[in-house]
Simulated scan of single mutants.
Amino acid sequence: MVVVLDTELLPESDRADAVITAMGESFVASYVPPEDPSAFTRARMEVWAFGSTSIFRSGMSGQQLVRTAKRTRSHPSSTLSLAVQQIGESAFDQQGQQRILETGSLLVHDDNSPYEYTWSGFGACTCLFVSLHDLGLPVDLIRDASTRVRASPIHDLVVDHILGMTRNADALSDDPAAAVGLANVSVELARALLTSAAGDTRHRRDALAATLLTQIRAYVRKHLTDPDLTPGKIAAAHHISVRHLYKVCADANFSLHEWITALRMEGAREELAGRESRHRSIAMIAQRWGFSNPTHFSRRFRDVYGITPRDWRRMAGRREGIDGDTSSV
Rank of each mutant, 00 (worst) to 15 (best):
S61P: 02
R67A: 05
S328Y: 07
R313Q: 05
S292L: 13
S327M: 01
V28E: 11
D36F: 00
A177I: 06
W48E: 08
H296P: 01
G232R: 03
A43P: 02
N112P: 08
A197D: 08
H75C: 06
V248I: 14
D134H: 09
A43C: 15
T211F: 08
A316H: 05
I240S: 04
S74K: 00
S78H: 01
D110S: 15
G324S: 02
I142Q: 05
S241G: 12
R44L: 05
G59T: 15
S26A: 15
T103R: 03
D170Q: 02
L163V: 14
L182P: 04
D311M: 08
M45H: 11
S281Y: 02
S90M: 05
T211H: 10
P176F: 09
A198F: 10
A177L: 04
P227T: 10
L163I: 09
A183P: 09
F291R: 02
W259R: 14
A177R: 02
V2E: 12
S196Q: 11
K70G: 10
A43S: 13
Q63I: 12
H155D: 07
H257E: 14
R99C: 07
A83K: 04
Q97L: 05
M315P: 01
S13Q: 03
F297D: 09
M265R: 07
V304N: 02
S152R: 01
A237D: 10
R42W: 13
T72C: 15
V139G: 01
V159K: 00
L163A: 07
E258R: 15
A235Q: 05
R99H: 06
A209H: 07
N184F: 00
L10F: 11
I20K: 06
P138F: 06
H257M: 09
D228F: 05
T21A: 09
E188R: 11
L182C: 12
